[in-house]
């Protein structure tokens, strides 16, 4: 079982992720924006962080950059949620330190497969 943080300003996306990954037995925490996500990540150690990119207060890219400066999150997978498979956005997010992406909309199957993939050591 892994500790996973989902950062998204949409409660329904958070809920969808929670249901899908909770079903796999993971412990899923939520944050509504990058700032809240960064704070939560400081307090608790997560094995995986999934984040939206466009959010109020602090966006996903800023949060990823911030987390990557934290030694505790060196090597921890961070996935971002993206609506389009826009290569520009992908390379920007990967440059910020993201491990990979999940394309919205996603189904539980797809999400589980990706999460299993990135959680494998």
């Amino acid at each position: 079982m892994s500790a996973i943080l989902i950062v998204d300003d949409s409660a329904s996306i958070r809920q969808a992720v929670k249901i899908a990954l909770g079903g796999l037995g993971h412990n899923v925490s939520e944050a509504a924006n990058g700032a809240e996500g960064a704070t939560k990540a400081d307090v608790a150690r997560f094995d995986l962080i999934i984040t939206d990119l466009n959010m109020p207060v602090m966006d996903g890219l800023t949060m990823i950059r911030k987390l990557r400066t934290n030694a505790a999150y060196t090597g921890v997978p961070i996935l971002f949620l993206t609506t389009e498979s826009d290569p520009g956005i992908k390379s920007q997010a990967k440059a910020a330190g993201a491990t990979g992406w999940i394309t919205k909309p996603f189904d539980a199957d797809q999400l589980s497969r990706i999460v299993i993939k990135v959680l494998a050591k």
Partner: peptide
Amino acid sequence: LARDALVNGTRPLALLDE
């Protein structure tokens, strides 16, 4: 892999397993 792959959470061993 890219230079920052390990830091960014890519797990090359998992890729080899796949």
